[in-house]
Computed example of a mutant assay.
Amino acid sequence: MTSRVLLFGSSGFIGAHVRAALERDPAVSELISPGRDRYDLVEGDRDSLIALLREIAPDAVICCIGRLGGTNEELIRANTLVAAKLLDAVEAAAPDARLVRLGSAGEYGVVPHGHAVTETGPTAPISAYGISHLAGTSLYALAAAGGRVDAVSVRVFNPIGPGQSAENVLGRAQLRLREAVQLRLSEIVLGPLGAYRDFVDVRDLAALLRSVVLAPSLPSPVYNAGSGNAVTVRAAVKLLAEQAGFDGEVREHGTGPQRSAAVDWIQADIGRAEAELGWVPAVDLATSIKDIWAAGAPG
């Protein structure tokens, strides 16, 4: 069976890798990736989106658009209202299409140290970012349970890999390290690095999203996308510094991002994706770090 897939956000860090994974799959007969000049998913109106869906008649719609930071209003618009708009439009214009969105580990909030969170675990986000994603995931789960739309959310933990965004801690660390190597500096300064994070390679994430898009049926409305392992951010930055050949001091100062500053531990239980979709991560942390550095400075 071949599929026509409509992908929003193909120019972003995650979206570009998702596009590459779908383009390689013979089960995808056509991949349509409209830019903002054709339709702006954040600013565009629902009627125009309905018209676009009727024109394309996709078998699947995947959204890789969202915000990591900004005001409460900006986060709600990009992460919640976009989800709601897509849900309404797909139900009206392409009710048989599978609708896939990216959620976030931030939906879980504070997790007991050493505990791997499952998709059925408690969700108590502690930031507007996490709330904005949990609202979108909840809307999709309700729609799926009611048989309105074949909707699914993939909760993304900490995506890393080639093309790493400077919005993420390893992207920022890479920029500081490149500057330090170029200028022969003896130290770089980053925020606190003691928190434990579950880093998942963006190519593994793209492989999971491809499986979610193309699976004949989905038993569950939510899947975790992580590596299944938690390491300190400090350990990941150390690996990156080694790749850079930087032997100076990495000084920690200030505060971390508001969306995750109070969460000192997060690790995904990825058993559901393995059991239901046959997906397991294939790229280890050391390879991800090596490829981040080899890919060059983030844009």
Rank of each mutant, 00 (worst) to 15 (best):
S220R: 11
F8S: 12
G66Q: 07
D59A: 08
S29F: 05
S11Q: 14
A207S: 14
H115K: 05
P257R: 05
A241D: 00
V181I: 13
A93F: 02
H115Q: 13
L7W: 07
I62Y: 08
F246G: 12
G248N: 09
I292G: 10
V82I: 12
G69K: 15
G248F: 04
P257T: 09
D201Q: 10
K290H: 13
L239V: 10
Y196N: 13
G254A: 11
T2L: 13
T232Q: 14
E73V: 11
A21S: 06
R101F: 12
G66V: 01
S10N: 12
A262E: 14
L53K: 02
A20D: 15
G69T: 15
V100A: 07
D47S: 14
D291C: 04
V250K: 00
V213K: 04
S11F: 09
D247Y: 06
E74N: 02
R19D: 13
E167W: 02
G146Y: 10
V263G: 08
G163E: 07
G163C: 04
D247A: 11
T287H: 03
V90I: 09
L190S: 00
S217Q: 09
T120A: 14
A124W: 08
D204R: 11
I292M: 15
E55C: 03
P298Y: 02
L53I: 07
A273P: 12
I289T: 00
A225D: 03
G147P: 13
A27V: 14
E23H: 05
L86R: 09
V18L: 15
L134T: 00
R272C: 02
S165T: 15
G256M: 11
T120F: 06
E252N: 11
F199Y: 15
V263T: 14
L86E: 11
K290A: 14
R203A: 08
E252T: 12
V156F: 03
D284G: 10
D59S: 12
A273N: 04
L185G: 12
S10Y: 04
L41G: 11
S220G: 00
R4I: 06
V111Q: 11
C63W: 01
S260G: 06
A94V: 00
D201N: 10
A268N: 04
I289K: 06
L208I: 04
S132E: 05
T118K: 14
Y223S: 01
D284E: 13
S3I: 01
S29D: 13
R19V: 05
Y108M: 03
F246Q: 10
L68M: 11
P26H: 05
A97F: 10
A230K: 03
A143S: 12
S260P: 09
T118W: 10
G271K: 04
I266R: 05
D269T: 01
P34L: 13
I292H: 14
P221F: 01
R203N: 09
P257M: 07
D59N: 14
V202K: 12
D96F: 02
I50Y: 00
C63M: 06
R203L: 08
L31N: 02
A207Q: 00
A105V: 04
V110P: 08
P58C: 06
D291M: 09
G171S: 06
V222P: 05
A173F: 07
L99Y: 03
A20W: 00
Y129S: 07
P95T: 10
V82A: 12
I50G: 07
P122M: 03
D264I: 01
G271V: 06
